[in-house]
């Protein structure tokens, strides 16, 4: 695997930019549409994902030498579902105010492709520290994507941010409905591709002038 030669910092950056879960890999698109109709929802979902992603990567990497490759899939499932349940129960008991805010999001994470994908593609083949860094990067990348998508959806759909009204006038209701999620994700993905192309062009141009 090419990842092995990357430094930890490069691994984190990789998750945020080059292999961004939503805008680059296009996995876990379901939450990027279902829970991004307000900035608050998007933010809490992202934070929850960082936590679960890091813990799952850490555990899978720790037990990778004890798991027979033939049964890795059910083991990953258990690790993910187990962490989600543990976090859910612990928060319900000891962090009641936080639980009220993000309890709903935590439970949804069981079914996220992005968590599973990183366990399968990265954590099971790499050392613990690298896996944790990969988890941090992927999680932050996911969080940023969620924040960007929900920022635009709430701003255009409700004229508000984090529940506080910002713009008065008639908002575009479609932006907070599921259809708006597709528009937002599609347009933003297109925008980032365009930025990528421009950057590549500029790089090519500077190289030729040299």
């Amino acid at each position: 695997m090419a990842h092995i030669h990357k430094s930890n910092w490069e691994l984190i950056k990789n998750g945020i930019f080059a292999e961004n879960t939503i805008f680059r890999m296009a996995i876990s698109l379901c939450p990027s549409i279902a829970v991004t109709n307000s900035l608050k929802n998007g933010f809490f979902m992202g934070v929850s994902v960082i936590f679960v992603q890091v813990m799952v990567n850490l555990t899978v990497s720790l037990i990778r030498n004890f798991v027979n490759p033939k049964i890795r899939i059910p083991i990953f499932m258990m690790v993910i579902a187990g962490y989600v349940s543990i976090i859910d129960m612990t928060m319900a008991a000891w962090a009641r105010p936080v639980y009220k805010q993000i309890g709903l999001y935590i439970q949804l994470i069981v079914a996220f492709a992005s968590i599973f994908a990183r366990a399968e593609v990265f954590a099971v083949k790499n050392k613990v520290v690298s896996s944790v860094c990969d988890g941090v990067g992927m999680g932050i990348g996911f969080l940023l994507a969620m924040i960007i998508i929900s920022f635009f959806r709430e701003l255009f759909g409700k004229g508000a941010l984090w529940g506080f009204p910002i713009v008065s006038g008639n908002p575009l209701l479609i932006m907070v409905l599921p259809a708006g999620g597709f528009f937002a994700v599609g347009l933003l993905m297109g925008f980032f591709n365009w930025v990528d192309m421009k950057l590549a062009e500029r790089k090519a141009a500077t190289e030729t002038t040299e």
């Binding site: 798991v67 083991i75 187990g82 349940s85 543990i86 612990t90 319900a92």
Partner: peptide
């Protein structure tokens, strides 16, 4: 393979049971 799977699942189950046993009375009270 079977033993491998069973052992890991039992460990996972035990951890979950432990967490549930400690948190559920507090959850209920809260």
């Amino acid at each position: 393979i079977t033993v491998n799977l069973v052992v890991i699942y039992i460990i996972g189950g035990l951890i979950l049971a432990l967490v549930y046993a400690t948190t559920s009375p507090i959850m209920f009270k809260k």
